[in-house]
Amino acid sequence: MLMMLRTDKPSRRCAINGRFLAQPMTGVQRYAYEIVSALDAILSTEPDAALAFSLVVPPQTRHPIDLQRIELVRTTFGSGHVWDQITLPRHAADVGLNLANFGPLLARRQIVCIHDANTFVVPDSYSRKFGLAYRTLLPIMGRMAARVATVSQFSADMLVKFGVTRRDKIFIAPNGHEHVLRWDSARARLPILQQLTRPYVLLLGSTAKHKNVDVIIRQADALDAAGIDILVAGGAFSIFASDGPAATRRNVHHLGFVEDDQLAALYEGALCLVFPSKTEGFGIPPLEAMAKGCPVISSNAASLTEVGGDAVLYVAPDDGQGWRDAIIRLSQAPDLRRSLSAQGRKRAELFSWKRSADLYLNELLRLATSRPTPSV
């Protein structure tokens, strides 16, 4: 339940790090965008909220955001981590909120969401420069911040295991599903969906090694014989190390980056989403698929069983035959597909941006009204 402290006028201020609006929209940026939007919606119903919020953004923002109660503060110089450390602190408030892994390293009265410990868990998946930077800076953030949010119990366990932060500092604020309800497949223009004459499985992910997309591509010939195509969506990012592009087969169609409405159409038309990742801090594609009624076959690794519960079919990440058998089985079992679709929709409702925003608001209120304590 939301605990709102009320005063006639907000006596304390919270500055939200808006650098995520200047970054490409991946899962981390989606999380920050949706939490800020949900916070704004909550504040719009609480005219006497005890905290006044501002969203401080760099000059080169990419994504518009519509806010009613949170003040948008545009800065005029800086970018990247330099902006975090030099520009953002000039707009310091009583408390700070950082939703995309990093913030001012020297600020103590702040919350930082560290989404995962993947650069420790799977260091070979990342470029040398990126991995070294994260393995150096994340423990500093985890030590200096007053509170550390993360998105799953698995992620919390990994942050503790690798010394990023203490367990008593952590609270879990998962991803939500409501953004999917705004997507409209009727607006999508995807010629491939008109060209295909057979069922398809949807494979999402970058070329990062831990996304493990090749385990599905290696089943392409067997799936082709079973009358099933594979649509591969997602972009490559420079932060990841890769073994190169997945091999091409006649039933494998590479779509590259797709917009939200296009993704909605892909989910709605798919036989299932296949998600063979070896590690995830949360893993939002299975949640999105479930919210759209798309059956899911997922890896049983890391946080993914937390997300899918009993509404998903699971396969060990490297069990190629298991993936092939699960896909073909699902293609031949319409009752199972309908059951997974219904269970998935119900499961998705357990994950809410609003509930996670409530958690942040309560933590920020406690932090704003507490006495400063040393971070160690």
Rank of each mutant, 00 (worst) to 15 (best):
G281C: 12
C272P: 09
I328D: 08
E288F: 00
P317E: 08
P295W: 11
A316S: 14
V315E: 03
Q332K: 15
R329D: 14
V296N: 04
L287G: 00
F275I: 07
D319H: 09
V315K: 06
V307I: 12
D325V: 14
A326W: 05
I284L: 15
V315A: 08
A302F: 07
E280W: 12
L273R: 01
E280T: 08
L304E: 03
S331K: 08
D325Y: 09
C272A: 14
Y314H: 03
V296W: 03
Q332D: 13
K278Q: 15
I297V: 13
A289S: 10
M290H: 03
Y314P: 02
K278L: 14
S277E: 10
S331Q: 14
T305Y: 05
L313E: 12
I327F: 07
G293E: 05
A302P: 05
F275H: 09
A326R: 13
V315N: 04
A289L: 04
S303V: 03
L304V: 12
C272W: 06
I297F: 07
L330T: 14
G320W: 07
L287H: 00
F275A: 10
G281D: 04
A311W: 00
L271K: 02
P286G: 01
W323M: 11
V274R: 06
R329H: 13
I327G: 02
V312Y: 02
D318C: 13
D319Y: 07
K278W: 09
L271N: 01
G281Q: 08
V296P: 03
L330P: 06
I284D: 06
P276T: 04
D318V: 15
W323I: 13
S331T: 06
P276W: 04
I328Q: 11
G308K: 01
G283T: 11
P286L: 00
A270N: 05
G293Y: 02
G320I: 11
P286Q: 04
I327P: 03
A270S: 15
N300K: 10
L273M: 14
G283C: 14
C294E: 10
C272I: 08
A301H: 01
S277Q: 10
Q321K: 13
G322L: 09
E306G: 00
S303I: 01
L304G: 09
G293P: 05
V307H: 00
T279W: 10
D325L: 12
K278I: 14
C294F: 05
C272M: 12
G283Q: 11
G283H: 10
A302Y: 07
A316E: 12
I327Q: 04
L287K: 00
P285M: 06
C272N: 11
R329Q: 15
G281Y: 08
L330Q: 06
A302N: 09
L271S: 03
D318L: 15
V312L: 05
T279L: 10
P295Y: 09
G320K: 10
I284G: 07
E280F: 14
A289I: 02
L313P: 11
P286W: 00
E288W: 00
G283F: 13
G309S: 02
S277G: 13
G308T: 03
I284A: 14
L313F: 08
I284W: 13
D319F: 09
L287A: 00
S298H: 07
Y314G: 04
G308F: 01
